[in-house]
Design a protein around this nucleic acid. Structure first.
Lengths: 198, 198
DNA sequence: CGGGGAATTCATCATCTGTAGAATTCATCC
DNA sequence: GGATGAATTCTACAGATGATGAATTCCCCG
């Protein structure tokens, strides 16, 4: 008579929860994405979320990790030489946001949550700093690589915020190649140019 | 015996609530800043907040308006001519964040809240777009002023996020003049340079 | 000196939040 | 085929949150 208990067949509930969580974190941020919203999105009882992931924080950290491959990026961006590396980086960055439906909620979620959640801010710092961009920048310009990396990071994160989160026009609906041509040279200067006195 | 009722003398409660609200919104964002936190910060009962401002949203909008004076900025930045206008804009921008203790929580609050609160996103769009930066940019470069304005805005907002909200090193503790020298030319190119094909 | 209105607080509501524990159902292994 | 354990749900709690309405106290004007 009761409807509790295990359901027959393979359910894949855990993966459905993870996907629903990514979507919710991406749309509403850490605070706005409630466990009940996530559970409903996965067609599942809220308690099951805790059963699998323990707490909301652990759920966030388990599910929102970025598949960032610095080695691959280095090869991809530096193969044609140094000239045009700024354009290529912007093109790659926009491509990830525009064309990869699985990665986008992770990125928006991290950015949205980093404003208020220290854990998310840590993820963002890692991506922009030592664990992420820095690896790439150090291979291009060893001198003052930290400063160059965060300058590039600040422009890229500002671009993402304006285009994808705040929806600032005409940035939000600009043609990607227009942005590559506009922003690429600025990035390239951060990467290889003269940054002024220390 | 009861402690309710009006208190003797001038209290300035309304202004204390406004200030406490600015501080709380700046530190915790719209969602994190609860009415109780705001009331406690003002030394006041939570109901008084509603008495004066109606709802939390109206409180936010009443209290978080930016004193942005485009005319003053134009005169200030364009007086010495066009050369170096990028550096001057970055210097002015950093000066507002670094040196004006009253404006800073408003800025952090808008940025923090814009990630999840549509009203705050609107404020941010206004500041970066038609009502704000665009006024300045149009006076400098009439051609493609909208695009130039949002490009400048994206770099400035990214800088603010990295330096003041996420605390990304070495950006967070960099010397302002170092940042003026590093970022100013990029801004200047957005303002006056060639942005590539349309 | 009396009354109207503003300031302030109290008590409270309905709702939502993350989380925990117990109960129920199924799959699998011996 | 009974036992063990995992999957899933139910019920519930304790706390926080935004909001409301009534009560209380004071100021000011006549």
């Amino acid at each position: 008579m009761a409807r509790s208990g295990r359901r027959p067949g393979e359910s894949g509930a855990r993966e459905r929860i993870a996907e629903s969580a990514r979507a919710a974190f991406g749309e509403f941020g850490f605070d706005g994405a409630t466990i009940r919203i996530i559970a409903t999105g996965a067609g599942v009882d809220p308690a099951l979320v805790h059963h699998y992931f323990g707490s909301k924080q652990r759920l966030f950290l388990s599910v929102m990790s970025l598949p960032f491959n610095a080695e691959f990026l280095k090869r991809q961006l530096l193969a044609p030489g140094l000239t045009g590396v700024g354009e290529r980086l912007v093109r790659f960055f926009l491509g990830v946001w525009d064309e990869q439906p699985s990665v986008r909620p992770i990125l928006t979620g991290i950015v949205r949550s980093a404003m208020t959640e220290p854990d998310a801010a840590l993820l963002l710092r890692d991506f922009l700093g030592r664990q992420g961009l820095f690896q790439l920048v150090a291979a291009i310009a060893p001198d003052r690589a930290e400063l160059r990396a965060v300058l590039v990071g600040s422009q890229l994160i500002g671009l993402a915020m304006a285009r994808y989160i705040v929806g600032l026009e005409p940035l939000a609906s600009a043609d990607p190649e227009q942005l590559v041509a506009s922003i690429g040279p600025a990035i390239e200067r951060y990467l290889t140019g003269d940054l002024g006195a220390a």
